[in-house]
Computed example of a mutant assay.
Amino acid sequence: MLSLRHSVLPLITRRCDSAEIFRSTRCVVLCAAKGPRPRYPRVWKSRKRIGTVSKSAKLVECVKGLSNVKEEVYGALDSFIAWELEFPVITVKKALKTLEKQNEWKRIIQVTKWMLSKGQGRTMGSYFTLLNALAEDGRLDEAEELWNKIFSDSLEATPRIFFDKMISVYHKRGMHEKMFEIFADMEELGVRPTVSTVSMMGKVFQQLGMLDKYDKLNKKYPPPKWEYRYIKGKRVRDKHNRNRE
C-alpha cells in the first residue's frame, strides 16, 4: 500500500502541473485575441488642431468678403493674425495659391502688398506672384514699375521666369519694341530664353518682315528635337512639335 501511494502522488502532481500550464497558455491566447488595451485621450491635450490648410481657407473667405478699400482690407488681415506668435507665412502663401486658382487678382495684389508691408515673404516667388497679378489685372504701369525695381536690384540674378513673363505681357499687347529691349537684356546677361519665348520672338520677326533676324534666331536657338512631359507622374519623352507653342 505504501508503495502504491508513493507511486500515485508524482503522477497526480504531474497532471496538475500540465493542467495549470494548459490553463495559463489558454489565458494568454485569450488575452492576445482581445487585442491592445483601449487608449483614452489625455485630458490636457486638445483634439481640435487647426492646420495651415484650414487657416488659409478661412483667410480666403475673410478676404473675399471685404470691399476694395485698403484700410478695411489691411485692418481685417491684421486682426486675422493678431493672436499669432509668428507671422504665418505658409498660411498666407497657401491662401495666395488658392486665390490664384480662382483668378482673384485684386485680392492677390492686396494680400501680397500687405505681406510685403509687414516685411515678410520678400522672396522672388512673392514678387513674381505680385507681378503676375498686376499683369493679369491690367495694371501695366505698376507691373513695369515692379519689374524695373527687381531688374535694377538683382540684374544678373534676375530669374528667367521674370523675363518670360514680361515678354509675354508685351506680346499680348503688341508692344514689340519693349519685347526687343527685354530680349536684348537677356542676351546681354547670358540668360537662355525658353522655347515659348523664342517662338514669340520669331512670330514678331515674321510679322514685321525681319526675316534675317528670324533666321539668326533659329540658328542661335534651334528648336529641341525632344520634349519631356509628365503623364501620371512619369516623365515621358516625346518629339517636339512647334505648333504646340
Rank of each mutant, 00 (worst) to 15 (best):
G51M: 03
T52N: 04
T52C: 01
T52R: 01
V53K: 07
S54A: 03
S54L: 01
S56I: 03
S56R: 05
A57R: 06
A57V: 10
K58S: 05
L59M: 03
L59T: 00
L59E: 07
L59G: 02
V60F: 01
V60S: 02
E61Y: 14
E61R: 12
E61A: 12
E61C: 11
E61L: 09
C62S: 10
V63F: 06
V63A: 12
V63Y: 00
V63K: 00
V63E: 04
V63G: 01
K64F: 04
K64W: 02
K64A: 06
K64H: 05
K64V: 01
K64P: 01
G65A: 11
L66I: 07
L66G: 13
S67K: 03
S67A: 13
S67H: 11
N68F: 12
N68H: 14
V69H: 15
V69T: 15
V69I: 15
K70N: 07
E71Q: 08
E71I: 06
E72A: 00
E72R: 02
E72T: 01
V73C: 15
V73Y: 14
V73K: 13
Y74I: 06
Y74T: 08
G75E: 15
A76M: 00
A76L: 04
A76Y: 09
L77H: 07
L77W: 10
D78E: 13
D78L: 11
S79W: 00
S79M: 08
S79H: 03
I81N: 12
A82Y: 05
A82W: 07
W83T: 05
W83P: 00
W83K: 09
E84N: 14
E84Y: 10
E84F: 06
L85T: 15
L85E: 15
L85S: 14
E86W: 14
F87N: 15
F87P: 15
F87G: 13
F87E: 13
F87Y: 15
P88V: 08
P88E: 15
V89K: 10
V89L: 10
V89F: 07
V89I: 13
T91L: 02
T91F: 00
V92Y: 11
V92L: 04
K93M: 14
K93L: 12
K93Q: 13
K93H: 09
K94M: 09
K94D: 12
L96V: 06
L96G: 05
K97L: 04
K97R: 09
T98H: 05
T98C: 03
T98P: 00
L99E: 01
E100F: 02
E100G: 05
E100D: 08
K101T: 05
K101S: 08
Q102P: 06
N103M: 01
N103K: 02
E104N: 02
K106Q: 11
K106A: 10
K106E: 10
R107A: 06
I108H: 01
I109F: 09
I109Q: 13
I109P: 07
Q110L: 05
Q110Y: 04
T112F: 10
T112C: 03
K113E: 15
K113I: 12
K113S: 13
